[in-house]
Write a protein that binds this DNA or RNA. Structure first.
Length: 259
DNA sequence: ATGGTCGCAAGGCGA
C-alpha cells in the first residue's frame, strides 16, 4: 500500500499537475494540504472518476486539507481536537480499510512566521495539541500515521542552507524540540529511517531560483506509530514533480506499507 | 536591507 503526502498549494491551480502525478505514481492514499478551497469548490468528480474516494476539510482562500483513497475510508473526522475556537482547517483523519486497517491523520501544521509573535505562539500551541492527539492514538496500540506539511525542518541536514533558516519559525530550536517530542513518544520519521543521506528536500521556494539552485528544505513528513512502522517497506520523495509544468512548490513524499 | 514568486480571488494576505 502506497501512502503519500502532497502540499498542492491550491487545488484550482493543480488541476493538471495533480492528476498527472496520480496517474504516474498510483498512490492508494494521498493526504493533500493547502487545497485553498471550500468543500463545495473541490473538484471531487475529477478524482472520483480516477477511482478515489474524496474527503475534504476546506476553508475559503487558505489552508484546507483532504484525503484521497482507493480503499474505503471509515470514521472520518475533521479538525484537531483541543481548541473549539480554532477555525483553521488543518487536520483530517480517517481509517483506511486495508486488509490490516491503518488510521491516517492528514495535517497542515502552521507556518509560524514571523517569530516571535502571535503566529509563532499559535504554531507551538498547535503542536502541543497534536502531541495530545498522538498520545491518545498511541494508547490504542494500533497502526496509524500522521502525514503532511509539518512546516518543520528537523535537522541541519534537511536544508541546503541551514544557516539561512536560523531565525525562521520552521527551524527555531523550540520548533525542532516540539517535533522531537513527537518522535520521542515513539513515532518514526519514515523517510529519515530509510534514507540517512543529507540533501533530500520536499520544498523549494518559487522565489530566487530556489529549484534551479536546489536550495530546498525537507518539511513534509510521514510519522508512523510502532504498529505502522513494523509494516514499513519503502519511502521516497518524488522530486521530479517539481520540474513539471506549473508545479506546486512542494513535491509528494510517500511510503509503502505491507498490507 | 529589500524584494524576489506564487495562489486565491479580486485587494491584500499568506507563504
Amino acid at each position: 500500500m502506497l501512502i503519500a503526502t502532497f502540499n498542492i498549494n491550491g487545488i484550482k491551480a493543480r488541476l493538471e499537475a495533480l492528476p498527472r502525478w496520480l496517474s504516474a505514481a498510483k498512490p492508494d492514499v494521498v493526504c493533500l494540504q493547502e487545497i485553498k478551497s471550500v468543500d463545495e469548490g473541490f473538484p471531487r468528480d475529477l478524482f472520483e472518476d480516477m477511482g478515489y474516494r474524496v474527503e475534504t476539510h476546506g476553508q475559503k482562500g487558505f489552508n484546507g486539507v483532504a484525503l484521497l483513497s482507493r480503499l474505503p475510508l471509515e470514521d472520518v473526522t475533521r479538525g484537531l481536537p483541543g481548541d473549539d475556537s480554532d477555525e483553521q482547517a488543518r487536520w483530517i483523519e480517517a481509517t483506511v480499510m486495508a486488509p490490516r486497517p491503518v488510521r491516517v491523520c492528514g495535517l497542515y501544521l502552521p507556518n509560524g512566521n514571523p517569530a516571535p509573535g502571535p503566529k509563532y505562539d499559535y504554531k507551538l500551541a498547535w503542536m502541543a495539541r497534536m502531541e495530545l492527539r498522538v498520545r491518545a492514538l498511541l494508547a490504542q496500540e494500533e497502526a496509524f500515521l500522521c502525514a503532511g506539511d509539518y512546516n518543520v525542518i528537523p535537522q541541519a541536514q534537511d536544508a541546503a542552507k541551514p544557516q539561512a533558516w536560523e531565525t525562521d519559525a520552521l527551524y527555531l530550536p523550540q520548533t525542532r524540540e516540539a517535533f522531537r517530542r513527537l518522535l520521542h513518544l515513539g513515532l518514526l520519521d519514515a523517510f529519515r529511517a530509510r534514507e540517512q543521506a543529507p540533501g533530500h528536500y520536499s520544498f523549494w521556494d518559487y522565489q530566487a531560483n530556489a529549484w534551479e539552485r536546489n536550495n530546498g528544505i525537507r518539511i513534509d513528513h510521514l510519522l508512523l506509530s510502532p504498529q505502522a512502522a513494523d509494516r514499513l517497506s519503502g519511502a521516497g520523495i518524488d522530486r521530479d514533480v517539481r520540474a513539471g509544468e506549473k508545479p506546486s512548490d512542494h513535491v509528494p513524499v510517500w511510503i509503502t506499507l505491507d498490507d
